[in-house]
Write a protein that binds this DNA or RNA. Structure first.
Length: 737
DNA sequence: TCGGTCGCGGCACAAATGCT
DNA sequence: AGCATTTGTGCCGCGACCGA
């Protein structure tokens, strides 16, 4: 950094601008203090602007820039099934949206003749990419559509050339550093080992069925087990005195109860969930390694969790056939002149109905086919009652197709990036200084300093840090329940280190888009009378009520459109995410979209707008009380807060929801939501968050806290002012020669 | 390592059904 | 009535897994 002729201002890596300036002013005569503060304040802001200048579009690209070498942003990608999407969208006109790891969903106007360069221009006009990327050729980025391989970028190619059609995704690939390595993928042996551990051998129906008079003929079955005549769940009383024990097992009780001595007899006295459930089971982190933790030490989003309830442990995979068919018996087949002994079993329903044929070979596949052809209704009802996954071929195929339609998240592709520290050069500093003169904050600072009557006191780094943290408005993070504990621990640490009181419940912001996405998926699922959309049977998808709900919301001024929520406005930057505007979108498209209007930070009175969710998914619909922090007309510009800021605008959301209850499907919709609530709550109780404590302590004791806290004053404004930009300034100063 | 069990997919064939 | 198509069923092979 260039030094003036007056007492030099040197900034070391561990010194802050504020501290250094403060000491310098304290030792300087007040007569020229004002003049020098102008000069050095000028330099300080030049540094700040310099950091901005080196990263074109910094204000808008803030979400994309690495923080401490990492991309913190996560992308929630959850999708409506394409069949339902096609059902909802009647007009497949032009128009596209860019979603993903971006601060907003950007509507793009495209046609089959739109070129790639024109798309890049639109992106650049939103400040999402630097202008210089809009070139005809570039080795660093590619534009392609799903299902098409990457190819060298050619800006003159049109959308149709890229193979884009209705419902196509456009992918803009940016070349970034890093990349997954082969070591990250589990080896085949590991996955095999994993599968083996999941496999749990269950008693066969022949063993478990108390009515099976031939159980004692089954080889290898313990008489003691047979005598229990029950499932493993009833086995705590396996050796209870009331049960008649065979003489062969008249061993001392201590030996009998020792599973090591009797390895063949499983210990059912205290069954661990993992031993009775095939499904992934979440238990305390104290007992298992956190498999939901990424390599960089951050917890993954809940997307990797199975949001469905675990299967009933007591049901085997062929439990359906065992339910609908009675015990096998042998029949002698004399057709073809040969005598064959066949193992058969009877269909209970056919037998009850007096059908012509009720006996079938004991083949599970045959049983499923028979149930699919003759007793599909009863089968589905039984599956619903017992939470059993349908094994009918058509249902299996439908599930497989649905699984294919789910797009993976981008998390595995996010790799650490080096810190972008601007190299110092006299030429760049000179260039930046010229631009700094027009910086409003700088001008304001000069004016304020000019009116000072005495020495100007600049706050030190600690004071600045504490002041900022005292203005903590909220902490935003993913909906993962472990973040609830993170904020709880953060509250304690702030109180211990800074004597800052923060309401951890009211200051917790979840991913609203994610929440609403779950809710709307439940709503949409409740509308379909068939598990999957069948173009030949459109009547099975009565969506009129959804349309009414949407109209109702729009009537109330709630710009909430159901969409495939690429809930891209989440994570740590929700307060700074600008509002989504959807002009020109076809109403039918808007209906088919859930475009969550995130608040807009930098403009006017909406600066402090923020979605605050006191409770997350469990309380979304039935308990939710949306209210507005600011008395604005347009709902999407309101901050939504629960608890502390109870405003009359709460009815804007409550009443439509209340009206939903009056619809015929209202109860069904709410029951779906409540089901998800149950599921998510059940997942929460198995979480253990002890791992968070040292992590939070680390963040609190270091200024890195800024990374996870977006204070009220940290909204990104064009031209500067955000904490991240200040942080870049510090980094720049620290690296200056 | 080997045998048994289970899940799964696919083929073959007969019966039922629909069409001309 | 004859043919084509669909439906329902039996059977087989393969692979994964478990236990001896």
């Amino acid at each position: 950094m260039g030094a003036p002729s007056r007492p030099s201002l040197r900034l070391s890596g561990r010194q802050t601008v504020y501290q250094t300036l403060g000491r310098w002013f304290a030792s300087s005569p007040p007569t020229y203090a004002l003049a020098t503060i102008v000069g050095y304040g000028y330099i300080v802001l030049l540094l700040f602007l310099y950091s901005t200048l080196l990263c074109p579009g910094l204000s808008n690209l803030q979400q994309l820039l690495p923080k401490h070498g990492y991309f913190y942003r996560r992308t929630h990608v959850s999708h409506m099934h394409l069949d339902r999407m096609r059902c909802l969208v009647s007009n497949q006109g032009t128009g596209s949206r860019l979603s993903g790891s971006l601060p907003d969903t950007i509507p793009l106007v495209v046609s089959p003749t739109t070129t790639a360069n024109e798309i890049l221009s639109q992106l650049a006009s939103h400040g999402l990419i630097p202008l210089q990327m809009n070139s005809t050729t570039s080795p660093t980025h590619y534009l392609c559509t799903s299902g098409h391989h990457l190819q060298n970028f050619n800006g003159t190619r049109t959308i149709s050339d890229l193979g884009a059609q209705a419902f196509s995704y456009l992918y803009l690939h940016l070349a970034i550093l890093g990349g997954s390595t082969a070591e990250e993928a589990p080896s085949i042996s590991e996955t095999t080992e994993l599968r083996r551990r999941k496999r749990v051998r269950k008693q066969s129906r022949l063993v478990a069925d108390p009515d099976n008079v031939e159980r004692d003929k089954i080889p290898g079955i313990s008489h003691a087990l047979l005598s229990t005549s029950g499932s493993p769940q009833t086995s705590p009383s396996l050796f209870a005195p009331s049960l008649p024990l065979p003489a062969a097992l008249s061993l001392p009780e201590a030996i009998i109860n020792d599973p090591l001595v009797q390895p063949g007899l499983p210990d059912f006295s205290n069954p661990h969930p993992l031993t009775t459930c095939k499904c992934p089971f979440i238990i305390s982190d104290e007992f298992t390694e956190a498999d939901d933790e990424s390599d960089e030490g951050f917890y993954k989003d809940l997307g990797h969790l199975n949001a469905e309830l675990p299967e009933e442990a007591s049901l085997s995979k062929a439990a359906d056939v065992h339910h609908f068919f009675d015990n096998p018996h042998t029949e002698t087949d004399t057709t073809d002149g040969k005598r064959r002994v066949c193992k058969m079993h009877n269909c209970k329903l056919c037998k009850k109905q007096g059908g012509v044929k009720a006996s079938f070979v004991t083949d599970v596949t045959t049983g499923w086919r028979h149930l699919a052809s003759k007793h599909k209704g009863a089968y589905h009802k039984w599956c619903k009652d017992t939470s059993f996954l349908s094994m009918l071929r058509e249902d299996i195929e439908a599930r497989a197709n649905a699984k294919k339609a789910v797009q993976a998240t981008l998390d595995p592709h996010v790799q650490p990036l080096p810190i972008c520290v601007a190299p110092y050069s006299d030429e760049l500093m000179k260039e930046t200084a010229l631009n700094a003169i027009e910086e409003p904050a700088f001008v304001e600072m000069l004016n304020m300093a000019a009116h000072a009557k005495g020495a100007i006191k600049l706050p030190g780094r600690n004071i600045t840090c504490q002041t900022i943290m005292k203005n903590i408005f909220c902490v935003t993070s993913d909906n993962a329940s472990n973040n609830n504990t993170m904020i709880g621990e953060l509250t304690q640490q702030l109180r211990a280190h800074y004597q800052i009181e923060m309401n951890n419940e009211e200051s917790r912001i979840g991913c609203l888009a994610h929440i609403i996405d779950l809710a709307m998926q439940a709503v949409i699922a409740a509308q379909s009378h068939a598990p999957h959309y069948d173009p030949k049977k459109p009547e099975t998808h009565s969506l009129g009520v959804l349309q009414q709900i949407t109209n109702l919301w729009q009537l109330w001024g709630i710009h909430m459109h159901m969409r495939v929520v690429g809930a891209n406005a989440i994570s740590a930057c929700a307060p700074a995410v600008p509002t989504s505007h959807t002009p020109g979108i076809n109403p039918s498209t808007a209906f088919a979209s859930l475009m969550v209007p995130m608040p807009q930070g930098p403009q006017g009175p909406q600066v402090d707008c923020c979605w605050v969710m006191q409770l997350w998914v469990p309380s979304l619909l039935p308990l939710l009380e949306f209210t507005c922090l600011l008395n604005q007309v347009v709902w999407q510009h309101h901050a939504v807060h629960l608890g502390q800021f109870v405003e009359p605008q709460a009815h804007e959301f409550k009443e439509p929801l209340g009206l939903m209850r009056s619809y015929p499907i209202g109860g069904e919709v709410l029951s779906c939501i409540l089901h998800k609530e149950t599921v998510w709550v059940s997942l929460m109780i198995y979480r253990n968050f002890s791992n968070f404590k040292p992590r939070v302590e680390l963040h609190v004791q270091q200024p890195l806290l800024w990374d996870i806290i977006y204070a009220r004053r940290s909204h990104i404004r064009p031209g500067g002012g955000s904490l991240c930009e200040l942080q870049k300034l510090f980094a720049f100063v620290a690296h200056a020669p």
